[in-house]
Amino acid sequence: MEILGLYNYWVFAILLLIGLYAVITKPNFTKKLIGLNIFQAAIFLLYISMDKVDGGTAPIIPHGAAKDIIYSNPVPQVLILTAIVVGISTTALGLALVVRIREAYGTIEEDKVISMDRDQ
């Protein structure tokens, strides 16, 4: 139990690194955006892992509830809830840019786009 107490944070680190790796090595712009999404999801996991309290429950307090119930931390949840919706909106903006690059260059591979830019 003690050893596995940090497992969430290790998975956060691994997912973050997988996303970073994809952004650096993949020349395809759509794939880079998918990598950024994984990177972003890792950070969501970090925040939500912090909200957990042992023996706690979701922070919904019914009227007239007993005083001794433990609730998990609502603050990281609020931050991440809105971040998810903002994240999909910015991803959509990135995808729109990918579509426009495809129309302007005929390809969405970074190396080809750069070499076409150099040739001009």
Binding site: I34, I48, D51, P59, I84, T91, A92, L95
Partner: peptide, 25 residues
């Protein structure tokens, strides 16, 4: 991890809408 609101958002956004946006692009 006790984040029911966030789980609902992630299911609707990530598994629903985001996949459709990626497929559209």
């Amino acid at each position: 991890l006790d984040a029911a609101d966030v789980a609902l958002t992630e299911a609707a956004v990530g598994a629903g809408v985001a996949t459709v946006f990626f497929l559209g692009a």
